[in-house]
């Protein structure tokens, strides 16, 4: 603790604060006049077709400093591989999709999936940083990006001439062991952020019965086979869903279907989402109708 030590502290206090990019660790230099929010698909897109939808963009951020993208530099913002044009209406892929036709004998229990980004190498790295490196600073960015997929889910409903609506958000569970290790469930965290923006309740409806090895280590055939009986609905799932029906208007036939959004981080073959959707459908009394939509942050 000498003089120069304190002098250094004083300099640090007086120096302009340089922000460092969360993803690449380089200092962020913002070009004059260029708003980093132009990389936000909501910011440029004033889409009038969404008027009926529950997403009102104007309420999201009042100040730019609150925007989650402020922590990224221009170079990293450019790397977001947004899926703006959807080729496969089932899985929401941006490229032609053999998987959805290949599922064949196996039934699809969900309506369709929408993802925010393609699972490109930089996106893979971001998710790995968040999920495996456990850098939770990524959450607000990934969660906000997932909101774009939510928007796509509603848009598709509009295209099918339905009133855009999601009644309940739930998420793919992780095993108890994994939850203890990691301290969080990435799907749950993403779901909670989307729910917070979209003003839709979140409920935990599913549980994972056994601890499988990481999905990313398995081949396609293995994945589908492995997914059997991994998930089940929680004990009171039916009860929770029933209570949601009670508060609906019985005269409106449209409201007799409950629309659940199932959230996960990555959609690869759809086996996880499909297994979860299957369990949800099984858990509820047959008098009611469930429509399950899938939202994943990335589509690989």
């Amino acid at each position: 603790m000498n003089f120069s030590h304190w002098l250094a502290k004083l300099y640090a206090l007086l120096a302009p604060k340089t922000e460092v990019c969360l993803a690449c660790n380089r200092p962020i230099h913002r070009q004059q006049g260029a708003d980093f929010r132009r990389y936000d698909p909501f910011f440029q897109n004033t889409d009038s077709t969404l008027h009926g939808a529950s997403l009102t963009r104007s309420s999201l951020f009042t100040r730019p400093t609150e925007h989650p993208f402020i922590n990224l530099c221009e170079a990293c913002l450019c790397q977001m591989a947004w899926i703006r044009i959807i080729r496969c209406p089932i899985c929401g892929r941006a490229i032609g999709c053999p998987d959805c036709t290949r599922r064949g004998s196996e039934r699809t229990y969900f309506q369709y999936n929408r993802s925010a980004v393609q699972y490109s190498p930089p996106m893979r790295e971001w998710l790995a940083q968040y999920k495996f490196r456990e850098n939770e600073r990524y959450l607000s960015i990934l969660g906000y990006m997932a909101l774009f997929a939510y928007h796509q889910v509603l848009l598709q409903q509009l295209m099918y001439k339905q009133s855009p609506r999601i009644d309940l958000i739930t998420y793919v569970p992780v095993s108890e062991t994994r939850l203890q290790e990691r301290g969080f469930n990435q799907a749950e965290q993403l779901a909670r952020i989307v729910a917070q923006y979209a003003h839709v309740p979140v409920q935990s409806l599913l549980q994972r019965n056994r601890h499988t090895i990481k999905q990313s280590m398995k081949s396609r055939g293995n994945r589908i086979e492995d997914m059997k009986d991994v998930f089940s609905a929680v004990n009171n799932a039916n009860h929770q869903l029933q209570s949601l029906f009670k508060i609906r208007n019985p005269n409106n036939p449209d409201s007799q279907t409950l629309r659940i959004l199932l959230v996960d981080d990555v959609y690869t073959t759809g086996s996880t989402i499909n297994a979860c959707a299957h369990q949800l459908k099984k858990s509820i009394d047959p008098v009611h109708k469930l429509e399950i939509y899938s939202l994943t942050w990335a589509r690989s």
Partner: peptide, 21 residues
């Protein structure tokens, strides 16, 4: 940085960002 932790139940369980790597 403090985040909610499922392992201990603390809504603000601190983790170290300096040696996160």
């Amino acid at each position: 940085h403090r985040t909610a932790c499922a392992a201990c139940g603390n809504p603000g369980c601190a983790y170290c960002e300096a040696c996160l790597a």
